[in-house]
Write a protein that binds this DNA or RNA. Structure first.
Length: 430
DNA sequence: GCGATCAGTT
DNA sequence: CACAACTGATCGC
């Protein structure tokens, strides 16, 4: 296999062109203000946000790529040094502001790198992205799909963000006398806040750095850093804790809302835990809301949970859930699929659940679906070529676990080490 | 001081 | 328990 020409969300030496899908920290690790490795391609929104994340970054290194347009890069083959043309098109990833997928086209065929993405089947923007993707392919086959496999497991199933936002709004509306605290990260979930603001006719407090981001993003003037103007506050996810909520409740009645694809962001309250058992009526999501064509109503569909006396967990996710990933892979029908989550010799590929959808007969990278032989393979490999630092933090138990009330075989057991890839010229899925 | 890596938190 | 995203401590230069 030849050395890489192109790196996506990886910032080591040896590539001719570097691509950034979005500005979350787990995709910019290794990037710094002292970047000297040449042009860095990203979306216009990411470019606008760049100075905030990397204050002294030399902005002349940035190359903005317009979403939906092909751009030609003149690179050279790492082996022969002969010229090699590569075309690239960014496509809306609907993950967070500025987030894009990259479609590459060249002598190697078509390679699609999703970055983190939410493949909703409803909504105007989603439809546009779908059309853009199909237009980009123009009937061609995707040779390698690098896939955001974060929730690539049938146990993960949640409603659209529109539905989840409505759930948040219902929670807030049913607590008219309460202050509301919502945990968010430095980028993402803006649409949720805008919907809340619009439906409940309220401003939303954010911390100063977040207000700066809102201004750069050009959002309407509904955000404020003045506490007195609103009862709804969005705070850094990291400072959203049970003791914070308990402390606030000694001053004023306050509830917290955690929008997340995962329901266990806070320790369960030692009493009632289901929202349906409280004053708030939140019943099965799949019964109450229409589900788009092709997405089967799943009994795993997550809904609102009251996870603590003062805290609600709402399935508002910026990553695709399993049925959406499946829809995406069925649409693309790629020859080969690789999870963006890093691999190790004993890594059990979550794409296990999708292998029947591949165009070729690529087998998922599973040592064996049998937990016992997985364990054996791990031990053998572990004594082999891996250095200890490469699997520090790895969790290696394979077991049958109770997952959202459904017994499934746990196959995703490696903690993610990094994201991002070096895209190479070979067709081979190694 | 800077970047990289690790440990720990929600 | 789980994950993504983030903070802060520590290490090496």
């Amino acid at each position: 296999m030849e050395g890489g020409m192109i790196s996506v969300d990886r910032w080591g030496k040896g590539s001719q062109a570097y691509f950034l899908t979005h500005l979350h920290a787990d995709h910019t690790r290794g990037l710094s203000s002292s970047w000297r490795r040449g042009p860095l391609y990203c979306s216009r929104v990411s470019a606008k946000l760049f100075p905030l994340k990397f204050p002294d970054f030399d902005l002349s290194s940035l190359r903005v790529l317009n979403i939906g347009s092909w751009h030609r890069l003149s690179l050279s083959s790492p082996s022969s040094g002969s010229p090699a043309e590569v075309d690239v098109m960014p496509i809306d990833a609907l993950h967070c502001p500025g987030a894009v997928m990259f479609m590459f086209r060249g002598d190697f065929g078509h390679v699609l790198y999703t970055g983190d993405f939410r493949w909703e089947t409803t909504g105007e923007r989603s439809q546009k992205a779908r059309t853009m993707l199909l237009d980009a392919l123009n009937g061609a086959n995707v040779d390698v799909l690098y896939l955001d496999n974060t929730y690539c497991n049938p146990a993960y199933c949640f409603p659209s963000r529109e539905v989840a936002a409505q759930q948040v709004i219902e929670i807030i509306a049913s607590h008219p006398e309460h202050d509301i605290i919502i945990g968010i990260d430095s980028l993402g979930k803006e649409d949720l806040l805008l919907r809340i603001s619009h439906c409940l006719k309220t401003k939303i407090w954010v911390w100063p750095e977040r207000l700066q981001i809102m201004h750069i993003l050009g959002y309407p003037d509904v955000f404020t850093t003045r506490t007195s103007l609103t009862r709804v506050r969005a705070v850094p996810h990291y400072s959203f804790r049970t003791d914070t909520l308990e402390g606030l409740n000694t001053l004023r009645p306050t509830i917290g809302i955690m929008p997340s694809g995962l329901p266990w962001m806070v320790k369960p309250y030692e009493g009632k835990s289901k929202a349906s058992e409280t004053c708030l009526s939140v019943t099965s999501t799949s019964r109450r809301y229409n589900v788009p064509n092709g997405i089967r109503v799943d009994r795993n569909m997550r809904t609102v949970e009251r996870v603590h006396q003062y805290i609600y967990s709402v399935p508002y996710s910026d990553h695709s859930c399993f049925p959406e990933i499946k829809d995406f892979v069925q649409l693309i029908r790629p020859s080969n699929v690789k999870g963006i989550v890093s691999m190790s010799p004993w890594y059990v590929d979550p794409l296990y659940y999708l292998s029947h959808l591949f165009r070729s007969n690529q087998r998922p990278q599973i040592n064996s679906p049998n937990p016992e032989s997985q364990g054996q393979a791990k031990r053998v490999q572990g004594q082999g070529k891996m250095k200890s630092k490469d699997f520090r933090g790895a969790r290696q138990r394979a077991a049958e676990v109770n997952f959202f009330g459904v017994r499934i075989r746990r196959v995703t057991i490696m903690r993610r080490i990094h994201r991002g890839v070096k895209i190479v010229e070979s067709h081979d899925p190694d």
